[in-house]
């Protein structure tokens, strides 16, 4: 292994977890690479959305469809979930007794926030349909429906993964595979924040400004 750069990006487990580091290095770096590939997907969907802004085909546009308040609440929920995820990692790293409960408690809170985000998002999309904002209506709406629900789908997948990891904690305790999985999920979870910020800025804030 090339020694100079022997540390993986993102969250670190800190002292006392050396055995996890070697494995984590390649795994977390690999996951970063995956995220960057995914970021290209989202970037291109955003670019598609921008090019489709005028393709309304006589249908409703951003100002007819979007509401700021639910998006605002969703943003707060998602940002807060990032903080709670960070707290989970901190207690994984620093809890003096290496206890499982604080980690699980923070992860549970993160999961609740994540699922709440998805639920609110689903409600918004449902409301959009009622306003005549179905994806079949126009190119613009198609682009919207490819972009925003894909993010929600990512959050759902992340929540599913979180549940699978919690099940692994229950089965194996906080062993090395669980720790490295938590590191990777952390990258995904925070990364979804970054994507969401791009989405709200271009789609909602930009559309309603």
């Amino acid at each position: 292994m090339n020694t100079e750069t022997g540390r993986h990006p993102g969250l670190n487990l800190g002292s006392g977890h050396a055995e996890a580091h070697g494995e984590a290095e390649a795994l977390v770096f690999g996951f970063w690479v995956f995220m960057m590939s995914d970021l290209v997907t989202f970037g291109l969907l955003l670019a598609t959305y921008v090019t489709m802004l005028d393709n309304l085909a006589g249908g409703p546009g951003p100002k007819d469809l979007f509401e700021l308040k639910p998006v605002f609440i969703e943003t707060l929920v998602l940002l807060t979930s990032s903080l709670t995820y960070g707290m989970a990692i901190l207690s994984l790293k620093h809890d003096p007794g290496r206890r499982v409960q604080p980690v699980l408690a923070w992860l549970g809170l993160t999961l609740v926030l994540g699922l709440a985000f998805v639920a609110m998002e689903a409600k918004d999309l449902h409301a959009l349909l009622a306003k005549g904002g179905a994806p079949q209506r126009s190119g613009f709406l198609s682009a919207f429906w490819a972009l925003v629900p894909l993010h929600a789908l990512h959050v759902t997948a992340a929540a599913l993964w979180l549940m699978a990891i919690v099940a692994q904690v229950w089965r194996f305790g906080l062993d090395t595979p669980v720790k490295t999985a938590l590191l990777r999920l952390g990258v995904l979870w925070h990364f979804l924040d970054v994507v969401w910020i791009a989405i709200i800025s271009v789609v909602f804030l930009g559309g309603l400004a």
Binding site: T5, P9, G10, L11, N12, F29, W32, V187, F191, V194
Partner: peptide, 17 residues
């Protein structure tokens, strides 16, 4: 987000990230 949550920084870390 990159700095505080994803811990990507300009200096001192593995360059490839």
């Amino acid at each position: 987000q990159f700095r505080f949550f994803l811990h990507i920084r300009l200096k001192g870390q593995a360059k490839e990230d």
